[in-house]
Design a protein around this nucleic acid. Structure first.
Lengths: 247, 247
DNA sequence: AAATTTCAGATTGTCAACAATAATTGAAAT
DNA sequence: ATTTCAATTATTGTTGACAATCTGAAATTT
């Protein structure tokens, strides 16, 4: 899958860019570009990341691109093989289960910490966010969670409230990207949105009440439910693929 | 702190990696060199990592060194600042607590998984390892855990038995390095070794018996105890430093 | 026809030089 | 002695060229 959609990043218009949000180094720019390309679907799972293509595209040399690739490989979005290159990670059902296991353990802990550490302002903001999600769903007359990462908004607020940089780096940065990639490939089953919102509410209630153990438990349950849903969707799409054309 | 001790590269992994996996690329060699230098104490916490020095030392160019530095920054051992360079991470008590929180959540989960997934051979190996540790301590007539990462041997066996690559990467690779660095700075309190061994035994028993919930609980307790011990040691050495000479 | 070898093109790995930025020095002024 | 500020040095950021390795297709052998 290599779609050459040439929208973003115009650096050849001869104008010195200043207002364009500033990835300070070229390596950062390459990092952002690759990341965005993956989420846009221009690079699909298993696709090879060609250093030369990217450096040409961005009109920079291969050095910064290589650094970006090495970094992204460490974070898991790319899989690096010596003398061969990097590919976009292709997540098997097994690997997805492993990722969910980590999320469950870590976000449950984060929920417990958030229940203790969140400020009052953060707690009310959490409740309000869920209210907004609810309203959005009613307005859209939809049973799926509002588009644009609203689901993650909730999780990120809790992650942030936990005041743990390590958990944040793992869940809020790396795993978030992985799951974002996953969601772009497999939708969620109809009705899951309503259910998820309900679970979110329970978790939020426990956190607002300062009940750490309950928050932890409910978050674990919520993520387990989310996992079951996504794995079902994965298996379904796997069957689809198989029924269309055998290879 | 820069001591120039030129030891050769030795595989220092506790467990069964490839016996002489030589660093295929120069970048890997640089990575290993920096890592080893940190553990040897040649680079101390907060020390600047100079690209030129390292590339000279290894007689390679700066490109591979830069890649290694970027990678190591992603994994947490180095802290990278644009246009300034990378430094060895200096772990505050707060950060250490955060690291332990992650370890507790993840290794507790790993213990639960290991209790279900370990083969019989692995279970007996686990017990036997603890026997060896016990015997070693009696022989040495010491109350501290045998040197050379024996403590981690136990944890790594469980991590491996959990059959979760993501947990392994986080705990068995990244966090292990962080804690190894910590241990080299602050010892453990006298008597902790015996206690730790006892806790290890309880965890192992639960795992061998296939009792996932109990294994999880005991592992969490064990890590919590380990955290308390290390934090106490950190505070003690912090007081030492303060009482000696103000700088 | 199937398997193997050869070889050219493509891609990654490495290097040394140059550019841009940060850190340091030291003289002048206060 | 201290501060300011410009000049100098040290270090990081980037580049284009070259070397090593992989890939795939044509040519050769079986």
């Amino acid at each position: 899958m290599i779609v050459d959609n040439d929208t973003t990043i115009v650096n050849n218009d001869g104008v010195d860019r200043k207002n364009w949000s500033e990835p300070s180094s070229l390596s950062d720019r390459a990092f952002d570009y690759i990341r965005k390309s993956i989420f846009d679907g221009r690079f699909g799972p298993g696709d090879k990341i060609n250093e030369l293509d990217i450096s040409n595209k961005l009109a920079i040399s291969r050095g910064p691109v290589r650094e970006a690739i090495r970094r992204m490989s460490s974070s898991g979005l790319l899989v690096f093989e010596p003398n061969s290159g990097a590919r976009v990670v292709a997540l098997s059902a097994d690997k997805v289960e492993q990722l969910y296991d980590v999320r469950e353990a870590l976000e449950a802990r984060a929920a417990a910490l958030a229940a203790v550490r969140m400020t009052d302002a953060e707690r009310t903001a959490l409740s309000r966010t869920l209210e907004a999600h609810s309203q959005q769903m009613t307005e859209d007359n939809s049973n799926s969670y509002p588009r644009g990462g609203s689901d993650w908004d909730f999780h990120l607020m809790i992650l942030k409230g936990a005041r743990n940089d390590v958990i944040w780096r793992i869940c809020g940065d790396e795993l978030k990207d992985m799951f974002y990639l996953l969601r772009s490939q497999h939708g969620s089953s109809p009705g899951r949105g309503r259910k998820a919102l309900e679970e979110h509410r329970w978790v939020a209630e426990a956190i607002v009440a300062g009940n750490a153990d309950l928050a932890s438990l409910l978050m674990a349950q919520h993520i387990r439910a989310s996992r079951d849903n996504l794995l079902a969707a994965m298996r379904a799409s796997a069957l689809d693929a198989k029924s269309s054309i055998s290879r």
